[in-house]
Design a binder for these strands. Structure first.
Lengths: 338, 338
DNA sequence: CTGTTAGCGCCTTCAG
DNA sequence: CTGAAGGCGCTAACAG
């Protein structure tokens, strides 16, 4: 059995109150006593019980994060930011992965309670109205990482702007026949792809170009589906000269599918993605960069502020997007410019 | 303030003990009382405090996992297995990522304590002798996922056998000039690559072939390094006809580097990896499969058994390896068989 | 079967 | 500045 605060107190010849004060860095302890107690603590390798402390203070010394589809690279980057930043602040984090629609409800109710954590992160998950209501009156502060939820603090990006940026990049290179590949039928309720598509449409519309229905492809985020999409596009009598993908993961597969049938990138076809995953750089893929790691890290910082009341809730922060032009986008071939 | 067990007891007109019994599914409650208490609990949306329960029972209702370099695909797969299995058993898990050498010591001491978790997982991390000693007398059971540590329960694979399997596959195809690319200088103390290399050497030795020093490449696990390795190998006057990579992540890069200079795979060069990541299938990469997801899931199951004393500790389980022959390995060209 | 009570280990008054 | 005592919410042991 590990030593308790009482053991330390006895050994140090002081009361438990004094040891507690030392532990909590209260100024109400003489330097001499403090040093002595500290020495005894060190000597006994004493560490206060999280459980007891939590019960006493009314809050667990841990953060909790509910993450959607942790398997994706983007979620992983966000998670890294969360873990690093939390770690730096002395917090560990309980991680809960969610795969299916609506599966976040139970975790939210069970995890985001004072006896479970001091603060909660909701990553790439869209709480419904009922959730928001519950969250609003929730004693533990919650931050949404990657999402804009009215009434809840969080960080988000302007997905429509992102779709627009990607499209305008291609337009400025001289492309006119531009396709979109996405997965806005994602059933899980959180769907950036649809907004990126809207941005794509807006950019093309404002430039005076129409979007043939065949140019827009959607479906599950699966390799086979995306491969089929790119093939269908390239099979068109007037195939696109450029493709906006709603994510780097899509863009990679599309590019691969194109190459497989001898289509050169960027010579014959320009491809731009979204996210700027690590691999995007390696694959020389143009993309719209969103701060993934940072969204996690800043989310934790925001949460810590919220926890110590240093921030008026709800507080929303829009994260910046950045066009990263690499080798997968270029001007269309002369004979394609029609 | 959420309702307490006392609130429930009062409202139900029973004692706290009875409510507690209902909560813990004790048979010592009449069906009638139980139903009534349950109804009140439901009505008040009461949920017991983890903190208080933990303090009382002496153990936190959470698992903890310390993971090395959570950023790799293989670590992520293991983590998925852990989270899914823990979730199924009603446990959440505290996740702690470790990047640098020796950084696991503090987490182990701070996290693997009864007031923090009911059980601990050490993933792809090699505890030193001092750690093992501490772990042995530790009140919370610990399982090593992906590692063989004397005195500590866990799951591991036979890395030497794995290296051997990959090499023998190439030998059986008729290859004689076989290279190895790995990262056994990994500084973090946990190093499967060295053992896989040993297996490679053993297989070639037993087949009666010598391994020129230039055929073995090691270095940091970085893209640029691996690209350089494959280029150096292909620049040799007698270049290898096949490459054993110590991981799929290496194999992918090596294959890409080879293709970039016009070397066809598998026609001019066979490449085999290790792990069988999701992408390996997509890239049609031959590999030695190790059960990643399963190692995490089974690790949790083993931990749960340990926790309820259903298992004599320490208990070690060797996980099976499986050769997965895909399109990246084939017989050497006729003119290469010398 | 059920109510009552004594801790679990710590923090936080409240007197000294 | 410091010691003693109450209470956080729950479980478990003990009477009934």
């Amino acid at each position: 059995m590990p030593p308790t605060i009482a053991d330390v107190a006895q050994r140090a010849g002081v009361g438990v109150g004094t040891v507690s004060r030392v532990l909590n860095e209260s100024p109400l302890v003489s330097d001499r006593t403090r040093a002595h107690v500290l020495a005894v603590i060190e000597e006994m390798d004493y560490r206060p019980s999280f459980l007891a402390r939590g019960l006493s203070t009314g809050t667990a010394g841990v953060l909790a994060a509910i993450v959607q589809r942790m398997t994706t690279q983007s979620a992983l980057q966000r998670l890294r930011g969360i873990l690093d930043e939390a770690s730096a602040a002395g917090f560990d984090v309980i991680l809960h992965n969610v795969n299916d629609v609506g599966d976040h409800r139970d975790p939210v109710r069970n995890l985001f309670r004072p006896d479970r954590c001091a603060g909660g992160l909701l990553v790439s998950l869209k709480p419904d109205d009922e959730d928001v209501e519950a969250l609003a009156s929730n004693p533990v502060p919650v931050v949404v990482v990657d999402g804009r939820v009215p009434g809840v603090s969080g960080l988000y990006i302007d997905d429509e702007l992102g779709g627009r940026m990607a499209t305008e990049h291609l337009l400025s290179l001289g492309h006119r026949r531009i396709s979109f590949i996405g997965d806005w039928e994602d059933p899980i309720g959180f769907n950036p792809s649809a907004k990126r598509l809207a941005g794509y449409r807006a950019a093309l519309g404002e430039a005076g170009y129409s979007v043939p229905d065949e140019y827009v492809k959607s479906g599950l985020h699966e390799r086979a589906v995306t491969l089929q999409h790119i093939n269908e596009l390239l099979d068109l009598s007037r195939p696109p000269t450029a493709v906006v993908a709603s994510a780097d993961s899509h863009a990679m597969i599309a590019a691969e599918g194109a190459r497989a049938r001898g289509v050169l990138i960027p010579d014959d076809l320009s491809v731009i993605g979204f996210d700027d995953l690590d691999i995007a750089q390696h694959l020389d893929l143009s993309t719209v960069r969103q701060p993934l790691y940072e969204s996690g890290a800043r989310g934790v910082r925001m949460l810590l502020d919220l926890m110590q009341g240093a921030l008026a809730a709800p507080h929303q922060v829009k994260l910046p997007l950045q066009l990263v032009a690499r080798g997968s986008t270029a001007e269309p071939r002369a004979d394609q410019r029609i």
